[in-house]
Simulated scan of single mutants.
Amino acid sequence: MSIKELTKKLKSESYSSLYLLYGKEKYILEHTQKMIVQAVLDEGTADFNLSSYDMEEYTIQSALDDAETLPFMGDYRVVIIQNPYFLTGTKAKQKVEHDLKRLESYLSNPTDHAIVIFVAPYEKLDERKKVVKALKKHGDVIQAEKMNIQLQKEWVNHAAKEANVHITNEAAERLIQLQGENLAMLISEVNKMALNVGVNGVIEPETVDELISRSLESNVFTMVEHVANRRIDAALRICYDLLKQNEEPIKLMALLARQIRIILQVKQLGTQGFTEKKMASLLSLHPYAVKIAAKQGRSFSEKELKKLLIQAADADFEMKTGQRDKQLTLELFLTSVVREKQVN
């Protein structure tokens, strides 16, 4: 079931007695859980009819006892079952005796006054287990799968809509490029920018560049972008800002070398006719990272990129062996790239 389908059912007050939320995307798990709870329980009685049990600390029996208890001043009880590791092949850190036979019995005939939500932060469940089969048969299932760029953009657009603003396609892509794949951070940044542009405002790429809390790797992306366009002052400005934040020159050098290597790999694969989607899969990169690398690669020849990787390796060696001051070595590397581009 998709989030959209679940939202539609909840709005029509069509509730399931059982929900299974599983996957590694924490934000979707938390968002979906909150959405179900808010739809089912009145704010005034939520404190009486909402409970949560961590299966690494409490037995499933105690959670089911709660689910079978009549709600207080409301129509439903909501019982959240966190970390149901018995749905997987893993074992808990602490030994807790769970009566899975009783759980199987409950799943086949759940009480109509309780909504039981299983929140399983695991990539995979053990499909061979009876409890997993029963839960998938009788409950509504939401998989919090790893986000591709299209799904990330949908969530970003949804967050903007919820905040009563509009975000352009270019701004959404820019945000994902600079912030990375952490969905919770993406939504947080959208909400921050929404406050800045105001109700019915528009979030443009310039808004993103001005307000976003940049990750280290996104700063390196931008540094390489400035270098590729011969903006050495802008590249050094980012470099100095990162050094002021106590980022190690050796680490920055390694990230620069990594980005140059990615640009070279994308350039080589592009000449072989690979699509950006296929390149992303082969290189285990986010599709937008490939798109940026392809764009940056147009400023360099393959020969130049190979030479830069050799220079980066030499700079790394000089830093680690103390042959030259680390910061000076980093500065010289950046300026040499621009100087070489100007000569060519």
Rank of each mutant, 00 (worst) to 15 (best):
S299W: 04
M319N: 10
A294Q: 05
S301C: 09
F300N: 01
E340I: 13
L305D: 00
K303E: 00
S299I: 00
T329F: 07
Q323I: 00
L334K: 01
A315Q: 06
K326G: 00
F300R: 13
A289G: 03
T335D: 08
A294K: 07
V290M: 06
I310E: 06
Q296G: 09
L309Q: 00
L330Q: 05
L328I: 08
L309A: 03
K303C: 09
A293I: 09
L334R: 05
E331V: 10
Q323N: 12
S301W: 01
S301F: 02
K303T: 07
F300Y: 08
L309D: 05
K306P: 07
Q296P: 01
F333Q: 05
E302G: 10
S301A: 02
R298F: 00
A312H: 12
D314N: 15
V337P: 05
A289H: 11
A313G: 03
E340G: 12
V290A: 06
S336Q: 15
K291S: 15
A294H: 11
V338C: 04
T321K: 12
V290R: 05
D314C: 14
A294N: 06
L308Y: 14
E318L: 04
L330C: 05
S301V: 10
S301H: 03
A294D: 14
Q323L: 08
M319F: 13
P287R: 12
R339C: 13
L309V: 00
V290D: 09
T335A: 11
V338Y: 08
